[in-house]
């Protein structure tokens, strides 16, 4: 089973949860990233996600494999949305099952952090004012070094 996949329609969190079920696991942690109505002081009306899917699936799978190596967890999965998303919709789902809760939280945090900064996925924000912009490509153009490192300009998650 691929440990990272894309969804072109609403993410089915219940089905994803079943995929990482394990009878030896005593706990399960999930993180959901949602489309929120503002970012960096601007009112957002919707988001568009686009991915270089061939490489994104490879890189995403590598991240989950890393988490399985680093933390004593049972199973893990990440599902990411592409396409046009309305406010409140789920953009990403990360789930981890483990014997104990501590590792599950740590691994879940590791996966979402790495996915946000390594997987070739882009999002375009559409603003209430009518214009739009690619996150990290346009606002931050003046500070190029931060583009792949900066962890404060997070949006949906």
């Amino acid at each position: 089973m691929m440990r990272f996949r894309f969804a072109v329609t609403a993410i089915d969190a219940a089905a994803a949860r079943v995929d990482i079920g394990d009878l030896s696991a005593g706990g399960f942690v999930a993180f959901e990233g949602w489309v929120r109505n503002h970012n960096e002081g601007r009112e957002v009306t919707r988001l568009e996600y686009e991915a270089f899917q061939e490489l994104a699936v490879k890189e995403g799978d590598r991240i989950v494999a890393e988490a399985l190596q680093r933390f004593p967890i049972k199973r893990a999965l990440c599902v990411h949305r592409v396409g046009s998303l309305a406010l409140g919709e789920m953009a990403v789902w990360v789930g981890v099952s483990a014997v104990h809760r501590g590792e599950a939280f740590d691994a879940c945090r590791y996966i979402i952090d790495e996915v946000k900064h390594r997987v070739p996925i882009w999002k375009k924000e559409h603003y209430l004012s009518g214009d739009s912009g690619w996150v990290n490509c346009e606002h931050c153009a003046a500070a190029p070094k931060h583009a792949h490192e900066e962890r404060d300009h997070e949006h949906a998650t």
């Binding site: 990233g33 270089f52 979402i112 946000k116 997987v119 070739p120 996925i121 999002k123 931050c140 998650t157």
Partner: peptide, 10 residues
């Protein structure tokens, strides 16, 4: 060849 602009998943 694919050039990869700053990513913004999640």
């Amino acid at each position: 060849v694919v050039f990869i602009p700053p990513v913004a998943g999640g």
